[in-house]
Amino acid sequence: MLGRLMKYEWKYIWKKLLIFAGVLLAATGIGLVSTGLIGKLHEQDEFAAFAIGMLGFMFYYTLIMGASIGMSVIVAIRFYKSVYGEEGYVTHTLPVSGREILWSHVLVNGFAVFSVGLIMQISLSLIMNDFFRGIFDTATLPGLGGVGNNGNIYAQMLGLSGVGAWVVIVLYLAIGTLCSVMMIYASVVLGQKWKKHKVFGAVVSYILINGSMVLLSWIILIPFMIRTIMGGDFFADGPSNITGGFLWIALAIDLLYGVIMYLIVDHGLTKRLNLE
C-alpha cells in the first residue's frame, strides 16, 4: 500500500516540482548574466555594469531562496491538509497504517524538496566561482585561500576532489532534507496541541524546534571553531580546514534532530491521532 500512497503523493507534487525547477533554471540564467556583469568591475572598471550585476545577483538569490522556502511551504500545507484537514477523513480511513502515510509523504515530498535543493546547489556552484572572482581579487586575498580561482567552489571549501565534494554534498542534502521535512511534519503534529489555532501552533513549534537546533549547533560549534582557529593557520590552509569540520558536525546534528522529529511524528500519527 505504501507504493499506492506514494503514487498519489507524486500525482500531487510533480507539476509543482516542475514549476520550481523551471524557476530555478531561469534564476540560474539571470545569475550567470549577473555575475558576468559583476566581473566587468575588475576587467574593464565598469561600475554601472557592476551595479546592475549586483542587483541581478540579488534577484537571483531571492529567487532560489524563494523556491527553496516555497517548496517547503507546499510540503507543509500538503501534509497538514491530507493528514489533519478535511482530507484526513479519507486518508485515515484507508486500509493503511499511520506509518505508511508518514513515509509516503517523507519519501515523495522529501524527494521534491531534495530535488529543489540539488538544483539550487548546482546553480550556486555554477555561479559562485564567478561571483567571488567578480567581487574579490581572490588570487591575492588570503582570507579566501584562493576560492573561486580553481575548479569547483565546493571542492575547494571541503578540501576534496570535485566528485568527492559532490558525493558529500548529495549526502548532506539528503540527510538535511530528511531532517528538514521531519521538522516541518513534527511542527504540524505539535501544532495540533493548540485547540483553536493549530496553524499558528505549528508555526510556533517550527520556530521553537529550529531555534533549539541553532542553539545546539552553536553550543557544539563554538568550541570547535576556537580550537580549529587556535590550533593552526586557518587562513593559510584555506577554508576546507574549517568548513569540512563544520559540515560533519552539522550532519550529525541533522541526523539527531531527524530521528527525534520522526519519533514525534510517528507517535502523533499512530498513537495520538484525534481528528476533532
Binding site: H92, K271, L275
Partner: peptide
C-alpha cells in the same frame, strides 16, 4: 463513529 473508524483514540 469516529472511534469506530480510528479517527479518534
Amino acid at each position: 463513529i469516529k472511534l469506530i473508524n480510528g479517527l479518534l483514540q
